[in-house]
Amino acid sequence: MFTVNDLTRAYPGGRGIQGLNLTVQAGEVVALLGPNGAGKTTALQAMAGWIRTDRGEACWNGASVAEQPERTRPYMGLMIGEPSPYLYLTGYDYLRCYHKLYPGVDEARIRETLELVGMTRHWNLKIKKYSTGMKQRLELASVLIHRPKLLLLDEPFSGMDIEGRREMASLLRGLVSDTGLSVIVSSHQVHDIEDWMTHACIVNEGRHISTAGVVQIRESFGGVEDYYLHHLARERGEAI
C-alpha cells in the first residue's frame, strides 16, 4: 500500500503542491488531474523522494520514501519529466545499464521488457533516431524492467499519436489487470486514462481539490471529465 499524507512543497508565487492525501492499494490506478502548472509534477517528484518537502511524507508499506529509500525504491518505477535517455546508445544498451542496479535483471528480462512495450523492432537502433513516442516507450521499459509494484507516471502519453496513446493505455491496463500493479498517473487529458483509472484526484494551483472513486464519480457526474470540469469551475467561481 502506498500512502501520501499532507504532502506539501511550496514554491514562490504559489507554485508547488499543498496538503495532498492519497491511499493507493494494489491494482488501483489513481489519475492525478489538473491544468498545466497545477502542481502534478511537483506532487510526483515529492512522492518519489526527489525533492524535499515542507511537510508530510509518502510511504510504501509504512516505510518513508524519502527517509528509507533502500526499503522503498526497489518496489517503485518512476517516469517523471521529459524522457532523457543517452542518445548515443541503442535501446538495448540503454536497458543494459540497469543490469547492475536491480538484481534479477538479465538478458532475458531486457528482451522481455522491450517486447512488452512494443520496441523489439527498434532494439538495435540508436536512441538519437527515436521519435518522442519511442523514447517514451523506452523510458517505460526502463521503469518496468525490475518488476515494480508501483508506477509513478508523469504525462506518459506526451508526444504520442492517437494509435500510440491507445497502445500504451492498453499495455498499462493489462499490467494492472495481470499483476496487480498500482499506478499514479498525471494527465491534463482525461480521455487518455478515463477507461482504466479507478480513482481521480484533482489538483489546481497547487492545492488538492478532490479525490473520488470512478464508480462514485459516474453515479454523481456521469463521467470523469464532467467531475473534473465541475470542480475546476467551482474553484474558479464560475457558474456550474
Rank of each mutant, 00 (worst) to 15 (best):
T53Y: 08
V117A: 12
Y228L: 05
L95R: 12
T113R: 06
V224I: 15
A233H: 14
P156I: 00
S182L: 05
D178T: 11
R165S: 14
H230T: 15
S84C: 14
D195G: 02
M76F: 12
E205A: 15
D178L: 04
T72S: 02
Q216L: 00
R234L: 14
L232A: 14
K100Q: 13
E28N: 06
V203H: 04
L140K: 08
C201Q: 01
S177L: 13
Y92W: 09
Q45L: 15
E155D: 10
L140A: 10
G14K: 12
G37R: 00
H122K: 13
P156L: 01
H191F: 06
R234H: 12
R111G: 11
H188N: 07
G37S: 01
E155M: 05
E67G: 00
A66P: 03
T113N: 07
L44V: 05
H231N: 14
M119Q: 10
P35W: 01
E219Y: 00
K149G: 09
P156S: 03
I80L: 04
V143L: 06
Q136P: 09
V203P: 02
G49S: 05
E112F: 05
P74L: 11
Y92H: 10
L229R: 15
D93M: 00
E139R: 04
V185T: 00
I110H: 06
G237E: 08
T113V: 15
S84Y: 13
M160N: 08
I240R: 15
E163C: 11
K40F: 01
L153V: 03
Q45W: 06
G37D: 03
Q45V: 03
I110W: 07
L116T: 13
I162D: 09
Q45T: 07
A200N: 02
P103F: 02
G16I: 14
G213L: 00
L140I: 11
V176M: 06
L87E: 15
E107P: 05
I51Q: 01
P74D: 08
A66S: 15
R173L: 09
R55M: 06
T72Q: 03
A239N: 10
M168D: 04
R207L: 15
L144W: 13
Y94L: 06
V24A: 07
H208T: 04
L181R: 07
M197I: 15
G133K: 06
G118P: 14
G19A: 05
N124G: 03
H146Y: 02
M1W: 10
E219M: 09
R55S: 08
V65A: 08
E139G: 13
G13E: 09
I127C: 04
G91A: 10
A31N: 03
Q216T: 03
I193R: 00
H188D: 05
E205M: 12
G159D: 07
D6F: 04
